[in-house]
Simulated scan of single mutants.
Amino acid sequence: MSSANSNLPGPYTRGIVLMCLGVACLSANDAIAKTLTAGYSPLQILFLRNVIALPATIAIALIMEGRSALRSHRPLAHLLRGALWVAAAMMFFTSFIYLSLAEATALIFVAPFFITLISALFLGEEVGWRRWLAVLIGFLGVLVIIRPGGATFQLISLLPVATALVYALLMLSARWVDSRESVWTLLVYITGAGALVSAFIVPFVWIPVRPQDFWLFAGIAIFGTAGMTMITQAFRRAPAVVVAPLDYTGLLWATLFGWLIWRESPDTLTIIGAAVIAASGMFTIFREQRHAGEA
């Protein structure tokens, strides 16, 4: 028994490291996107990110699963998910123009609470009072950050919250995908569908890319793809209850990048609100895992 237990830390450690690195990469992705919003439309940033990332995403899927990863049984479901992905990313990138990176990142972490609401109200899932309490506390954290009615309130602060709602729909829409399709298939098709959907609109906002910005667009594709790949692998290496809470390390990275690049310093209420959202989110994750174990 002791020898079997001694093997557990290895896989779990790899999962934890992969999750932390993946979140760091996605935070770097967001920081680069915020930098690019100074000269380009969020839609153009998203389009080029997906176009550049698509070949690498296909290569990773082929390596991990072979040609079967490129086969979809419900392509229309992926197209709809691509549209949701474009809408969420556009709103999130737009919020970078007006909000600090830490503030926008903290607000988008209310997505799990929207998933709970939608699941209970529209999908008929049973939600206990503890999860409802976590939802309420999470939204109190949002109110602390955006401070509606206060002198510092900005209507644009609701944009990351709207992003979280659309992102929740994106996560729940994975149920529409055929169960025979793997996470690598989902990764390939959401990248391809995102490029396709944004391609219809990007000509209206296109600005010629300056040569000095090519490396930034390459960076956002590299960090975004690497982050999603490592996070996917993290959930395969360790239980969700172990790695999912580490997603909140993104708040630390967002604060660090915001200070290093733009000298942004979140105020006390933003820090308190972010802590409340993170705490209630982690409670939801642990509660969900416990409920799944009991089932």
Rank of each mutant, 00 (worst) to 15 (best):
A4Y: 02
S6T: 01
S6R: 13
L8M: 07
L18M: 08
G22M: 05
V23G: 02
D30I: 15
T37G: 02
S41V: 03
L43N: 02
L43G: 01
L46I: 11
I52S: 10
A59D: 03
G66N: 10
R67H: 09
S68T: 06
S72H: 00
R74S: 13
A77Q: 06
G82H: 09
A83H: 13
L84S: 13
V86W: 01
A87W: 02
A89V: 05
A89T: 04
A89K: 01
F92R: 01
A106G: 13
F109I: 06
L117N: 07
I118T: 02
L123E: 09
L123F: 09
V127A: 15
G128R: 11
R131L: 09
L133N: 14
L140M: 14
L140E: 09
I145V: 04
G149N: 09
G150S: 03
A151H: 12
F153K: 07
L155K: 12
I156W: 08
L169C: 08
S173D: 05
R180E: 06
S182G: 12
T185G: 01
I190Q: 05
G194S: 14
A195T: 14
V197I: 13
I201G: 02
Q212I: 13
D213K: 03
L216C: 07
F223D: 10
G224C: 10
T229G: 06
Q233N: 06
Q233E: 10
A234S: 10
F235Y: 09
P239M: 03
L246I: 08
D247C: 12
D247A: 13
T249F: 00
G258L: 06
R263D: 09
A274Y: 04
V276K: 05
I277Y: 14
A279Q: 11
A279K: 00
S280V: 02
R287H: 10
A292S: 11
E294Y: 15
A295N: 12
